[in-house]
């Protein structure tokens, strides 16, 4: 029977992720920046059936309206856009950016209109968040009806504060944006996951930024992240389409491993074959 064969039914793997009022079925969230071409971006999204992608808000060019629009390369029928406030350095600017993004998405009738990836930066070199402004912006945006997905650092206390402020998801960085350094403090990430999910197991924690290659995404998921948001590692890979696929497999593998429950680490070995019935005595040394 197919059901008991190696091909797991999609149904059996169905593992929806609820973020605010949205439900995602794919746990890889991709950014739309930095691709060599819109075509390459579209191909990368197609190969993983991207369900949710982030997008930025910028000033319209006033003297060159001949430019192609990114929206022509996104499957808006089946893609939830997640507008961000990238490049904002204070709460006030982030609020304006979020409201303008919401207005555009409402006009497009995209389901992503009511949520926002909040990013309030504190340093243009590290692109680390300004957590004070991020917290302030979160409160204001929540008051304004937004579902806020908060980019933040990997500080468990700050993560807790943002959740308390009403963030629909807290999204700690694994390492600096675009750095490709991976999850530099897995211990902190694990604490964030445990703290935020205590008594609230479905609260979504998303690793946002820092992923360099597939194993980083898998590690994030193994540590209990609910999803991974990445951009540069795919867009700037030598073969973005292939890397997108690798990330998709990694996120799935990491998620399954987390659910499966890994074995405990131990200093010494544990033989996989029986200790009894050996055809010769083993040496006396330990």
């Amino acid at each position: 029977m197919m059901e008991s064969g190696v091909f797991l039914e999609r149904e059996a793997l169905a593992d929806p992720l609820h973020i605010g009022s949205q439900t995602l079925h794919e746990r890889l969230i991709l950014g739309t920046g930095k691709y060599a071409s819109f075509e390459q971006m579209a191909e990368s999204f197609k190969v993983v059936a991207a369900e949710c992608v982030t997008i930025a808000v910028r000033r319209e060019k006033l003297h060159d309206s001949s430019g192609r629009n990114i929206l022509d390369y996104l499957d808006l029928e089946r893609t939830i856009l997640l507008p961000n406030t990238s490049g904002c350095y204070d709460a006030e600017t982030a609020l304006r950016c979020a409201r303008m993004g919401r207005e555009i998405l409402r006009g497009l009738e995209n389901p992503g209109s009511e949520w926002v990836k909040l990013e309030v930066l504190g340093s243009s070199r590290s692109l680390m968040p300004d957590v004070m402004e991020t917290l302030k912006a979160t409160r204001e945006l929540v008051k304004d009806g937004f579902e806020v997905l908060c980019y933040t650092n990997d500080d468990p206390v700050m993560a807790q504060r943002l959740k308390e402020a009403g963030a629909a998801s807290v999204m700690p960085a694994g390492s600096p944006i675009g750095s490709g350094l991976g999850i530099v403090n897995p211990n902190n990430l694990q604490m964030i996951v445990e703290d935020l999910k205590q008594g609230d197991p479905d609260y979504p924690v998303i690793v946002d930024a820092g992923v360099g290659t597939a194993s980083d995404a898998a590690i994030a998921m193994e540590l209990g992240a609910d999803a991974v948001l990445l951009n540069t590692s795919v867009a700037r890979a030598e073969d973005p389409v292939k890397m997108a696929l690798a990330m998709d497999f990694a996120v799935r593998a990491g998620r399954l491993a987390y659910q499966a429950g890994r074995i405990k680490k131990s200093k010494y070995a544990s033989a996989s074959s029986p200790e009894h019935g050996l055809i010769a005595d083993r040496p006396a040394r330990p």
């Binding site: 739309t32 982030t54 000033r59 929206l71 990238s86 304006r96």
Partner: peptide
């Protein structure tokens, strides 16, 4: 400004207008 205001709202001297669109970003 909501879309409905586009045809209704007339601009005044020294108004500051921002016109934004969506671009690729992470």
């Amino acid at each position: 400004q909501p879309k409905t205001a586009f045809t209704e709202r007339t601009l005044h001297p020294d108004d500051r207008v921002e016109i934004v669109t969506l671009v690729g970003g992470g």
